[in-house]
Design a protein around this nucleic acid. Structure first.
Lengths: 153, 153
DNA sequence: TTTTTAATGAGAATCATTATTATTTTAGTT
DNA sequence: AACTAAAATAATAATGATTCTCATTAAAAA
């Protein structure tokens, strides 16, 4: 029986079989840039695809992360969140996390300067700690605009 | 009844009542610099203080984090880890996390340059995103020396 | 010492994630 | 298009970290 769906994402590297659930999960994350939990993805797919199981969402998010297509963010509340990695151009950004409401914002400020410094740091770390670096993350913690109002001085 | 223990940590700011479990938890983290999970702390205290409950460890780690005495690290495996914040001098470091075995190493390379850049970034972020920054974290992911040997190619 | 009330211990409950297993699909082959 | 072997899935149980509940204990103040 022929498939009833077409994938625009089959060009990704080897990942076993490309199935409809995998396609839907990746499609959601590629088309909705942001930082999504497994439950977010599940809830977004549920109306049109109620048969897809939460376990499959987890498996797929893990697979796509291992493939480098998604980026996993460990949050202090114990939920992981995932974001579409994108091409090299849009790839490089960092996060602002509100310590009050948990909101995550992206920032791309001073990327050029940062890339230069990171390069220096990575070389030094490789030399000194014999640690081979594959990636890095910068996270700023503080208060988002909405929460600044609500917290007493 | 007089207390049977003396705290060297009573100088910390307001935190309600300073109790023996709180003292023991803080004592452990202050004297054993590293990145410890709640269970690590529980296991370390158990031999001499088996009556202290895991729930109290969690409550205390959270309290000390909110006080700024500890720093909470969210790990991808869903476990939080805690480190003693220390004074301003030793305060500033970042983490190397091995993506294979989970080992965490500290690094203090290029702190001066990094502090300068971070200051620029924070100002820009405050201006542009109206986000008030209280702290930041840099994390490098890669392979620790031991795991470089074991991973093929 | 008495009193007030925050903090604790024990264990149940919750929440995110992973494992199990029978069934369904994919993708390659006729 | 049908056949087949292996991979992936759905459903649900199991796990593991963390939080909650509540009766009891202990800290700090009077």
């Amino acid at each position: 029986m022929p498939r009833s769906w077409k994938s625009p994402f089959k060009t990704f590297g080897h990942c076993g079989r490309w199935t409809q659930p995998r396609d839907l999960v990746l499609g959601f994350l590629a088309e909705n840039r942001g930082h999504w939990s497994a439950k977010d993805v599940y809830a977004s797919l549920f109306p049109r695809h109620p048969q897809i199981s939460l376990a499959t969402i987890y498996r797929t998010l893990d697979l796509l992360t291992r493939m480098g297509v998604l980026n996993r963010l460990a949050m202090a509340d114990g939920q992981n969140r995932y974001e579409f990695t994108g091409g090299p151009a849009e790839n490089h950004h960092h996060h602002l996390i509100c310590t009050r409401c948990g909101r995550i914002m992206d920032t791309t400020d001073f990327v050029d300067e940062e890339v230069k410094l990171i390069q220096l740091m990575e070389d030094a770390i490789k030399e000194k700690h014999r640690f081979v670096i594959e990636g890095h993350q910068m996270t700023f913690y503080g208060l988002c605009p909405a929460c600044q109002q609500e917290r007493p001085g």
